[in-house]
């Protein structure tokens, strides 16, 4: 059904920490790797001149001109935010796109999808990509086939991107529980929504990069000022004249 649930029991989602993300693309690879199983995420011309493919998670990199401070580079992972007020769900004509009442995960039932692409148009965040080979819509599943998967060891029952991140920049949890790890992170670090003006009420939150002070002087800086004396000084003066 493409009607949105009034409220969901749990609100599962991700916190993405822009302070610790180093843009290594490990989450992109892990996501593609995990979700490529089964019918998969197709690539077109992957080893040719113009490769292209379906991904559920992509990492951008931006530079930020900071008014009174050094400029910053921020790497920025972008995947589905599992919005509470998901426009991608209500536009779907077939009921293929839906939000689960039990945990808030937004999914596509590929067996019902006609590949009209309207849900991808409705998503402000570019979180949906049509698979060019299969003609159906793909999106982040919040690794629903891992988080409840009792055949996996307990440590692996979290999204592939979270599990793989070498800097712990991605966190998974239940936002409906104010005591959860993710809720606390958001409260402590000022987690925020992307494009709140779009009215989508995302579940996923982003943590801002911590403020950086003015650039500290390098410990090697005093060496730059050393004046050569003795033979070295004489050499220096002679060479300077040539």
């Amino acid at each position: 059904m493409t009607a949105l649930p009034q409220a969901t029991e749990k609100r599962l989602g991700l916190v993405i920490d822009l302070d610790t993300c180093v843009g290594c693309q490990a989450c992109v690879t892990a996501c593609k790797g995990w979700n490529d199983g089964g019918i998969g995420l197709s690539d077109q011309d992957p080893y040719g001149a113009s490769p292209s493919g379906t991904f559920l998670n992509r990492v951008h990199s931006y530079q930020v001109a900071v008014p009174d401070g050094p400029a910053q580079v921020v790497t920025f992972p972008r995947s589905c935010l599992h919005c509470d007020n998901a426009p991608c769900v209500t536009v779907c004509p077939t009921g293929a796109s839906y939000k689960r009442a039990e945990d808030g995960i937004v999914l596509v039932n590929e067996d019902a999808c006609i590949g009209c692409g309207l849900c991808a148009w409705a998503c402000p965040y570019g979180a949906r990509e049509m698979d060019a080979a299969q003609g159906v819509m793909k999106k982040c599943t919040l690794c629903v086939d891992r988080i409840y998967n009792e055949t996996l060891p307990e440590v692996d029952r979290e999204p592939a991107c979270v599990r793989t991140c070498p800097t712990n920049a991605r966190h998974f949890g239940d936002f409906a529980d104010p005591e959860s790890h993710v809720s606390k992170l958001v409260a402590e670090r000022g987690g925020y929504d992307l494009m709140p003006g779009m009215g989508t009420q995302p579940t996923n939150k982003y943590l801002p990069p911590r403020a950086k002070g003015p650039g500290a002087a390098s410990p090697l800086a005093p060496l730059l000022d050393v004046k050569a004396t003795g033979i070295a000084g004489w050499l220096d003066r002679m060479l300077g004249k040539i």
Partner: peptide, 18 residues
């Protein structure tokens, strides 16, 4: 607003994501 980096300053694209 798309990245929330307006909190920090003025963002622009450094490298394309792909």
């Amino acid at each position: 607003t798309a990245t929330g980096l307006d909190r920090l300053g003025l963002p622009s694209v450094l490298d394309p994501a792909h």
